[in-house]
Simulated assay, not measured.
Amino acid sequence: MSVSYLLKRLMAAIPVLFIVSVMVFLFLRMIPGDPATAMLGRNASAQEIEAVRLKMGLDRPLPVQYATWLGKALHGDLGLSVISGRSISRSILERLPHTMALAFLAIAIAIAIAIPSGVTAAVRQNTLTDRAVMLFSLLGVSLPSFWVGILFIILFSVQLGWFPSSGYVSIFENFFQGIRYLLLPAVSLALVMAAVSARMARSAMLEVLRQDYIRTARAKGLSRWAVVIRHGLKNAMIPVITVIGLDFGWLLGGTVVIETVFGIPGMGRLVVYSILNRDYPVVQGVILYMAIIYMLVNLLVDFIVTLMNPRIRY
């Protein structure tokens, strides 16, 4: 990956972030309700509500409100929470490690499930194993992650008592205990990603197995699995890694619901709480952070693809 391409991608991210910020700003203002009323309560007088609106700048035109917020954001100041009065940047940085730990554990589980099952289905095409993997993929994309999470709580927490049903322990404080709290929500998120990636791995491996160099390797007397692992796997994984990078955006969105179901104090739960309380600045800040993370992950995916296949140049 050349330096010029990296600079172009970073420059292209600027208008994307600008569009995201504008859309979020406008859509939040379309939600019924008023932040000042949510902050003071329904029993507040009209004079008190109006005073808060003036203090928060909600009486100004929308373009002025947006320009004020954007100017502060460019200097790293996302403002203060309407409800708690805390710094939004500090609140996000406190919760970001919890969300990223959940997201990356879910990705690791998805990869561990998808690649072996997809490759096995391709090697054993049209067998019972292939049909079982395809059935798993169909179920994975059909079942909502939050519903799977609730089933996991009923089975593994309530009935069997193997894992805690809710709560959180940071993996940075107690790694093994933190994994126990993260495993069920991570698997709930991973199943959908694993289902999509398994189908992609199967399709990519089938395409690779039809190539001439694979037939040449087989003609040399190598076993089927030796050909698959030594010659086919690396090229077949390129589209799978690309799909996983694209699915990372869905994964960040999925944490919003899963964190609420399992009581994880991450950015997703912060978004839900802020939307319910009309805390516009917090929602804007969290979504802006998520957009930046998503673009950085896709840039990392491009870099990994170039390492796996040096013939690819951007």
Rank of each mutant, 00 (worst) to 15 (best):
S2R: 08
V3C: 01
L6F: 15
L10V: 01
A12I: 15
V22E: 04
V22L: 15
L26K: 09
R29C: 09
P32T: 03
L40H: 12
A44L: 07
Q47D: 09
Q47H: 02
I49A: 03
A51F: 10
R60A: 15
V64A: 02
T68P: 00
W69I: 05
A73I: 04
H75L: 08
G76C: 03
I83D: 05
G85S: 10
I88W: 12
R95K: 13
L96S: 05
H98M: 00
M100V: 09
A101V: 01
L105D: 01
V119P: 05
Q125F: 10
T129H: 11
R131S: 14
M134G: 02
L135D: 01
L135Q: 04
F152I: 12
G161V: 00
S165K: 13
N174E: 06
V196E: 02
L209M: 13
A217S: 10
R218C: 05
P239D: 04
G253Q: 06
F262C: 06
G263S: 10
G268E: 01
V271K: 05
L276H: 11
Q284G: 03
G285P: 07
I287Y: 02
I292V: 15
V301T: 08
V305G: 05
T306D: 10
M308W: 07
R311H: 12
I312R: 06
I312M: 13
